[in-house]
């Protein structure tokens, strides 16, 4: 799969821009050749970004390996909505053990394959942000540090959704969760906390680290493909929308993920062996407010009174991401660009 660089224009649809690529390069949900790693009938909420992200990521991994793939899964929404007994949405060998050990179980699978001389079957571990950046972090870091032949994918919806939207170390400051209530002088999640596991993964100097979002599924697919071409410990951190936990319309899932990147709130980049090697540029920086106001988890920033101070702090964080990763694209003379600039 070639890495066609797509330029997205905000036409109001926020759709992935399929019509801009050649037909043979398009993502097609109903393609009969799809692996359908997660098949229909699962119990995810309408508009669940995690279901979408996991499906595209695992389908890409299935394609990359010719279906020769084993997945391990942490406890969380993805596990619960995909395997309500006696049904399973998984079309590939899949194991759920515990909340905090998906990376270690994946290590065990990889070790067993290695001991058996099986060099063709590949391993993916996956979990939510809680299962990755909090309770599963030690196992994940151990897997990275040993260089086990595992791709771990985190579907980051920025809170413990499965247990009713509690704060995790991936919850952004000021966001409401059920354990960071929107009360007091500093409503929502505390400032100065949390961690960036993609950067921590990078610090392990593993061969491949990437971030992605469900707004650009082609990019996610390409990154999974790239990850599967490499051996050793690899990590992809996917921002996935959660309509229920974010208090957003199901129809806005893709739009929110795109706004998260276009505001600079969620930088999209790739790293190799400790260095960032590419970033997805933003063509037109969108003010964070556009992103915040679509989610009731930030409602307290606008009601009953506007909290300019907090919105500014969030904007400053986004600006820092843009500066730090060099996210803003230099203007070019693309005729479409010029039209957009002209406000047509």
């Amino acid at each position: 799969m070639s890495a066609t660089r797509l330029k997205y224009f905000q036409t109001g649809s926020f759709a992935a821009g399929n019509r801009l690529v050649d037909p043979d390069q398009r993502s097609v949900q109903s393609d009969p050749g799809r692996a359908n790693a997660i098949t229909c009938g699962h119990r995810a909420c309408q508009g669940c970004g995690e279901a979408l992200g996991a499906r595209y990521a695992l389908d890409a991994a299935m394609r990359a390996t010719g279906g020769d793939l084993i997945a391990t899964n942490a406890t969380g929404c993805l596990e619960v909505f995909s395997t309500p007994y006696p049904e399973s949405s998984w079309q590939l060998p899949w194991i759920h053990s515990l909340f905090g050990n998906a990376a270690a179980v994946a290590t065990g699978v990889a070790a067993a394959l290695k001991a058996k001389g099986n060099t063709h079957t590949r391993v993916v571990g996956q979990g939510g942000d809680g299962g990755t950046v909090d309770i599963g972090f030690a196992c994940l870091s151990g897997m990275f540090e040993r260089g086990d032949d595992v791709l771990f994918i985190c579907y980051d919806n920025e809170a413990y959704m499965n247990t009713g939207v509690q704060r995790s170390a991936a919850t952004p400051p000021a966001a409401y969760t059920s354990t960071t209530q929107a009360v007091g002088d500093e409503p929502g999640a505390t400032w100065g906390q949390g961690k960036s596991v993609p950067l921590i993964a990078l610090a392990h100097e593993i061969p491949y680290v990437a971030t992605a979002t469900i707004a650009d599924l082609r990019d996610l697919e390409r990154k999974v493909q790239t990850a599967m071409e490499v051996r050793g410990a690899r990590y992809i951190h996917v921002l996935v929308t959660c309509p229920l936990g974010w208090g957003a319309a199901s129809a806005d899932s893709i739009k929110l993920a795109r706004l998260a990147t276009e505001t600079g709130i969620f930088p999209v980049w790739e790293g190799e062996h400790g260095d960032v090697v590419s970033v997805t540029k933003i063509r037109h920086q969108t003010p964070v407010e556009e992103y915040l106001k679509l989610q009731t988890r930030y409602r307290h920033l606008f009601l009953p009174a506007r909290r300019e101070d907090i919105i500014e702090r969030i904007q400053a964080r986004a600006d820092r991401n843009i500066a730090r990763f060099g996210l803003l694209e230099a203007a070019d003379d693309d005729p479409l660009d010029l039209q957009v600039e002209a406000g047509s």
Binding site: T72, I95, N101, T107, G108, A112, A115, K116
Partner: peptide, 15 residues
């Protein structure tokens, strides 16, 4: 915790 978890993954893969 990881020791037992790695053993779980390995055993479930037939090792």
């Amino acid at each position: 915790y990881a020791a037992m978890s790695v053993a779980i993954g390995a055993s479930a893969t037939g090792a």
